[in-house]
Design a protein around this nucleic acid. Sequence first.
DNA 1: TTGCCTAATGTGAGCGCTACCGTTAGCGCT
DNA 2: AGCGCTAACGGTAGCGCTCACATTAGGCAA
Lengths: 334, 334
Amino acid sequence: MAETPKLKDVAKMANVSEMTASRALRGVSDVSEAARKRVKDAARSLGYVPNMLAGNLASRKSNLVGFIVPSLSSFVFPEVLNGVSATLAGSGLQPVTGVTEYDLDKEEAVIAQMLSWRPRGLIIAGLEHNSNARKMLEKSNVPVVEIMDVDGTPIHHCVGISHQQAGRDMARKLLERGYRKIAFIGTKMPKDFRAQKRLAGFKAVLAEAKVPLLAQELYTRGSSIQTGRDLTAKLLAAHPDVNCIYYSSDVMSVGGLMHCLSCGLSVPGDLALAGFNNLEILNGLPLRLATTDAHRFGIGETAAELILGHSGRDKTKAGEIITMLPTIEIGDTL
Amino acid sequence: MAETPKLKDVAKMANVSEMTASRALRGVSDVSEAARKRVKDAARSLGYVPNMLAGNLASRKSNLVGFIVPSLSSFVFPEVLNGVSATLAGSGLQPVTGVTEYDLDKEEAVIAQMLSWRPRGLIIAGLEHNSNARKMLEKSNVPVVEIMDVDGTPIHHCVGISHQQAGRDMARKLLERGYRKIAFIGTKMPKDFRAQKRLAGFKAVLAEAKVPLLAQELYTRGSSIQTGRDLTAKLLAAHPDVNCIYYSSDVMSVGGLMHCLSCGLSVPGDLALAGFNNLEILNGLPLRLATTDAHRFGIGETAAELILGHSGRDKTKAGEIITMLPTIEIGDTL
DNA sequence: TTGCCTAATGTGAGCGCTACCGTTAGCGCT
DNA sequence: AGCGCTAACGGTAGCGCTCACATTAGGCAA
């Protein structure tokens, strides 16, 4: 029993051919109940663990789903992965994670690595890729689901919200509520395309309404409550007239709220706050922060479903574009 | 160019044998610079993507690392995954994620699935497994790193903190600070072994000091600020004399703090609060909550390093047990 | 020259499965 | 009896690579 048992050993023990053993273990038809039972018993008693590498090579498809995101350190992508994982559970497919750090060249490398597994599908955050990456994805025969964002041209499928619209909607909402001294706090990362799109949409609506964006604070590192708090303080110190701040993330707006709490600013009386994502941590705070729901979990679920749905149909058929709505949650801070 | 190009095609184009092409692409020695360049150019111009399934089958080892955790919906495991992913980046290895939902039978299934990939290593949260799972892991020839916890007998390697000690230390700290009206709020999940160990250690020290645990609130769903807030309110309503609460998670203790803020209780004057994990969200709140650092990211990093380190040595050599210290951060709430 | 050594390359022989097709046995029907 | 049909099973030929071992070419000492 030194070596790991192979299918051959199981077959021998069950007195059937390898083929029958293979069918029995995979739950394929054309096997009598008696044989199936013998095979399963043999497999169990030998402690047989199938070799997916061999199986998938022979059948020319794998049970892996690539999941490629810019980061795992925010609250955003882990929750998407959670949705993917929940939907994939029980299907026999498993997600392989790759992180790009908002770098399109790293993304290309990760995509290449993923494709070398001949995965059943690829879930990638964002619609922006460098030209090599696009080419690889297009000629790869692997169904691709681009997630989070729908503002662009997907390769096959796409599930997300329009971040442009999210920005525009929030700007309209703020204007509608009468705010005119508006500021923005967000990430500076030039490769966070979605944050950029939100800001662009936001600014566009303000411009249309001839309302200036009074101030803007940008940061490069990850979002955090502390950063939100510090930048809010800094921004208000420099622009005391601002009475409404739009943040690129809820984590940051929570920091804003904490600043207001600790220095006695009334919200939304003195300062209105709005974030983005609708994170779970917003629940239970002294005030319900205004935000936009980004459907993280649902996007993960839907992306995984799209890939599961690809079993029957042929590979790269017409892509589906599933647009979710960036619903604004008004909360108590506007 | 209908079919995906194979190594054979690259070799033909570069005028070398498959073997030389294989060596050239893998960066193995024994290839002249000229040949290597020709091969790489050919590969690029054909858009060649190697097939890991075939390659790994032939070389009998894969570039996958299994990562098995009970859940992805808390803040805990995504951050561990982040550490794993960060360390693995650039090594050519990639993490495959499996979720067990705190169910040892699901865990067994996930382990079986993972092992069928003949992964380079397996990272599993927790030291508790059912006997089948243990058996599979032991006879699998795959290095196993059990993480988070060190209270138990690891299969090979182990990286984590002692949760018993974390509970004991916090109890001592509370007693030392003079608290005697102590309560606990935590998860009821019978399969969250680590939370149980913390509570056991906590209770043991209280018992030694003959200090009763005045009250205890348990919940079954995931931790959240809202839940922490609600249960704190409920507990205090039933036990107004309690002046110190230990929570099984920081997310919950933040909820406790929010409750105090909103009903004017002074912290720690009226009520002292302590949590567990040292989550990032603790930074920037009105008060720095007391907590214990659980070294999530570091555990992920270290586990991945252990697996990377396994390249040279032989597979299942003496296991390393790496114990990190559950350092208490006193903060402002004790 | 001859021999020996090293660097660079090539040649089978699989890795452990599954797709594809062929075979066999058993049954009901005319 | 002879036919067709289906359920159950098996043999063969790979999947696309890499290992372990040749083999070749060139360089240098004796």
